[in-house]
Nucleic acid binder design. Structure first.
Length: 828
RNA sequence: GCGAAAGUGGCGGAAUUGGCAGACGCGCUGGACUUAGGAUCCAGUGGGGCAACCCGUGGGGGUUCGACUCCCCCCUUUCGCACCA
């Protein structure tokens, strides 16, 4: 790398300047319009990986680009610093989670600084500090007051080897991510957030998120999983207590030939007491339950079921139908019981075939609506038929369409009191309890008399006590006597603190509000500060957060709105999901040993090159394969600029007069410069960083061309060229551009200069090239004056010898003329 | 199985509204400068053919003067969901 520009000293110089003179610190007091650029806050796992570098390079390009457009840009960073990995690392390395975490933060902060990202470091938020997590507790208490935070028994993932609850994300293919033993389901008492109360809003307000990726919207919509249907009570034969089922296809109820309960359904045990061989049946049911509690390993497992011995009455046909218990019905969804309509549901059909249960067709394709080519259906082979259609063999409803029948049937069940139209959601309440140490203590004291009592606000934060020697199998906080015992805030009697901590997704649900007012000790944030900065104008992060984090933060904002803290429904206007950084096509992971360390490449090429390459190598939303030779190419590009700049520096270093193009070469270069400005600006506003950079590279080639063929250089022009190049490249390679900017005799941070606009005068070409086609094939090109009219252009084309040879005296059928573009001559 | 996105040179990728396919970069080939080149500069680089020219955007149809782009069918890959009643 001999002869390369001295990126080490240049980058150090500017980083020092930016951060000591606090160039990027912002306040709400500005006459510029505000812009909030946000990147997902990192988990401090040790060192930055290339995914972080990509995220922050993108965010920084956006932030600096907007500064140059006159905005007051908030661009903060923080650390999502509670969580399991810290605890695991502590156990493994015999250290403390706090030390491990703070060391990692220090290292990663150094790495961020080294990349020259324009963060406002005065707003750094660290979620494991009491001045942050006390507000988690504060939010918890507000939610507790409103019944949004509540305690209930729930099914959780339990690893018997590690003796702990696992988050869903920590269960991979039904096994514990650490010890790979099978995960069980356990019933435990846990704290929950009633996110289901917001299910409808979370769904509805997706419409406000016009510039979120379609993919994320779809994933969220599916996650909330709304189904419109009805709950219907089926009375039992010889039993007063009916069983309620949920269906979205009430129109098929005349075809309901049996009922199926989930193995966990509360009525199962009671029903089986009437079973001739109840013991054995119960044994079978336990098998199903055990099977269900393991998470199934992909694909559907075989449907198994047994007859309960009891019968229900179909409220529409008044027929008695057998009640079965089967492994394919889920207790968690709907009512845990279904009416089975084998003719019109593929699962019911499969089950009915296996156990030889009656199948009755009640819907047929609606030939009157739709383009259905009316096959004379021979019922058997076209079943199950799962679409809407027209009802048959359905009593008074026969002949109606599904839609018509549904409305009438909903009305009937309501009138008869046997059911009601219902909406169900897949979304479940958010279980936030973790039997772990490194997290926010839940601010609750259990009093033998008063029950679960909230810790009063003035006693916040409930500090996380220091626990040495964290062990498995023991809830760490329960081992700290000084923490565990606490007087009941209501009656003063001796009580016990909650020893569970909060899910770390709570921390990341509102951190971006805290950035607006990070030092507030009276409130999570001052509403007026948040009001100034919000909503987030651009959020950038990995698509892996499409569901959890991005739904939780939307939920939190809605709760905050209901608490009167904010006035909007949605916190983030625009979301951009970047692609992954891979190596040799595979996700980087320690196991595979293909992790690329950013530090190594910053050492080798400098931060500007690394940033440039990571934005250039692929469109930002797609996966990017890290290639060292590619990074070298970007390094070469910066060096090429540097080389030609160094040659000219003495002549253009100081302002040297007006730009006056004198020759055709001058004019050509100037035109190309302005075309580049145009292109780069357009591309950046569309997040097409790769093509924006390509445009500048292309321009550099023109500059080399100019350098080679023009002996008498136009210094004012070249000065202008370097100014503009430095400006448009500065969001990507800021140190490099600052240096050039300074050497051109300018003062002041280049990111606060105006983005250079293309001058329309120089965008207009005097001569344009018209493509001439014959029958759609390119047969020639004409250089014509820009304002040429259609007739002269056609005339020129027909006079062209080459074109004539293709026409060969044939009669012209048609000529298609696209002004400024092409002429297509059609001949037989 | 359902849903979404995507398939373009040796590779990463370009191509506002249908209008010169392959910008830009990597790699490769040749040359220059050099004791040297893994530095730099210049030239070339989709395939076939000496050439004129022909063929080329996963495959097959279609619409159009004109299709990477629009429509229909099929194949492949990636991602998401996965017994949701």
């Amino acid at each position: 790398m001999r002869d390369s520009y001295d990126f080490r000293s240049i980058e150090q110089k500017w980083q020092k300047k930016w951060f000591t003179s606090r160039d990027f610190q912002v306040t709400e007091h500005s006459d510029r319009p505000k812009y909030y650029a946000l990147e997902m806050l990192p988990y401090p796992s040790g060192k930055l990986h290339m995914g972080h570098v990509r995220n922050y390079s993108l965010g920084d390009a956006v932030a600096r680009y907007l500064w140059m457009h006159g905005y007051n840009v908030l661009h903060p960073i923080g650390w999502d610093s509670f969580g399991l990995p810290a605890e695991n690392a502590a156990i493994k390395n015999n250290t403390h989670p706090e030390k491990w975490t703070l060391d990692n933060i220090a290292n990663m902060k150094r790495q961020c600084m080294r990349l020259g990202i324009s963060y406002d470091w005065s707003r750094e938020v660290t979620t494991c500090f009491p001045d942050y997590y006390r507000w988690n507790q504060w939010f918890f208490l507000r939610m507790f007051e409103r019944g949004i935070a509540y305690r209930k028994k729930g099914i959780v993932n339990w690893c018997n080897v590690c003796q702990t609850v696992l988050a869903n994300e920590q269960v991979e293919d039904g096994r514990c991510w650490r010890c790979e033993s099978e995960v069980e389901k356990r019933e435990l008492e846990q704290w929950y957030f009633r996110i289901t109360d917001y299910a409808e809003q979370l769904l509805q307000d997706l419409d406000q998120l016009q510039s979120w990726p379609e993919k994320v919207i779809t994933m969220q919509r599916n996650w909330v999983g709304k189904s419109v249907g009805a709950q219907v009570r089926f009375s039992l034969e010889g039993d007063d207590e009916p069983i309620e089922i949920f269906t979205t296809r009430l129109d098929t109820i005349f075809g309901a030939t049996f009922m199926v309960l989930a193995p966990e359904h509360p009525r199962v045990a009671q029903l089986l007491t009437h079973h001739p061989d109840g013991e054995k049946a119960m044994e079978e049911v336990r098998k199903y339950r055990a099977q269900q509690s393991q998470i199934r390993e992909g694909g559907e497992s075989e449907k198994l079921g047994l007859f309960s011995g009891s019968y229900a009455i179909n409220p529409f046909t008044h027929e008695r139908i057998p009640i079965w218990i089967a492994n394919f019905v889920l207790m968690e969804y709907g009512t845990g019981a279904i009416m089975a309509v084998p003719a019109h549901d593929s699962r019911d059909y499969e089950f009915a075939q296996k156990y030889r249960l009656p199948i009755r067709r009640v819907i047929e394709p609606d030939s009157s609506s739709g383009s259905e080519t009316a096959h004379p259906e021979t019922s058997q082979d076209s079943l199950p038929y799962c679409q809407y259609g027209r009802l048959i063999d359905s009593g008074a409803y026969s002949g109606l369409t599904s839609e018509e029948a549904l409305q009438k049937m909903y009305a009937l069940i309501k009138a008869e009191g046997i059911g009601e139209p219902t909406v169900t959601y897949r979304l479940k309440d958010w279980g936030i309890s973790r039997q772990r140490y490194w997290g926010t203590p839940i601010p609750i004291i259990y009093c033998p008399d008063c029950g679960a009592v909230p810790v009063p606000d003035d006693q916040l934060p409930v500090r996380l006590p220091r626990v040495e020697n964290i062990k498995l199998g023991v809830s760490p906080l329960a081992t700290v006597a000084g923490f565990l015992k606490a007087p009941c805030p209501k009656c003063g009697k001796s009580g016990k603190r909650e020893t569970d901590t909060m899910d770390t997704f709570v921390d990341s649900s509102w951190y971006f509000y805290r950035y607006c007012d990070p030092d507030n000790s009276r409130m999570p944030f001052a509403p007026e500060k948040v009001k100034y900065w919000f909503p987030v104008d651009q959020y950038i992060g990995g698509v892996e957060h499409a569901i959890l984090h991005l739904i939780y933060m939307r939920f939190f904002t809605k709760v905050m709105r209901d608490l009167g803290l904010v006035t909007w429904d949605e916190p983030v206007l625009n979301l951009f999901t970047q692609g992954m950084v891979t190596k040799d096509g595979a996700k980087m992971s320690k196991n595979k040993g293909n992790v690329v360390d950013p530090d190594e490449f910053v050492d080798l090429f400098g931060a500007d090159t690394v940033r440039l390459f990571i934005l250039f190598a692929a469109p930002a939303e797609k996966d990017l394969d890290w290639k060292e030779t590619g990074a070298e190419g970007c390094f070469r590009f910066l060096n090429r600029i540097w080389r030609v700049f160094s040659n000219y520096e003495a002549s253009i270093g100081q302002p040297c007069g007006e730009v006056q193009p004198r020759t055709e070469n001058d004019r050509k270069l100037l035109r190309e410069l302005h075309q580049t400005l145009q292109r780069a600006g357009q591309d950046m506003s569309r997040f097409h960083m790769n093509t924006a950079i390509a445009a500048v590279m292309k321009f550099l080639n023109s500059l080399y061309d100019y350098d080679e063929r023009v002996a008498e250089k136009n210094w004012p022009l070249l000065r202008n060229v370097f100014e503009k190049m430095a400006l448009i490249l500065s969001p990507f390679a800021p140190h490099f551009c600052e240096e050039i900017w300074e050497r051109l005799g300018h003062q002041g941070n280049i990111s606060f200069q105006h983005w250079p606009q293309a001058d329309p005068v120089w965008l207009a070409e005097e001569q344009i090239e018209i493509v001439v086609q014959v029958n759609g094939r390119v047969r020639g090109k004409l250089l014509v004056p820009a304002g040429i009219d259609e007739e002269s252009c056609k005339k020129l084309a027909l006079e062209d010898r080459r074109i004539q040879s293709y026409l060969a005296g044939k009669a012209i059928q048609k000529m298609v003329y696209v002004p400024g573009r092409l002429l297509n001559i059609v001949v037989p």
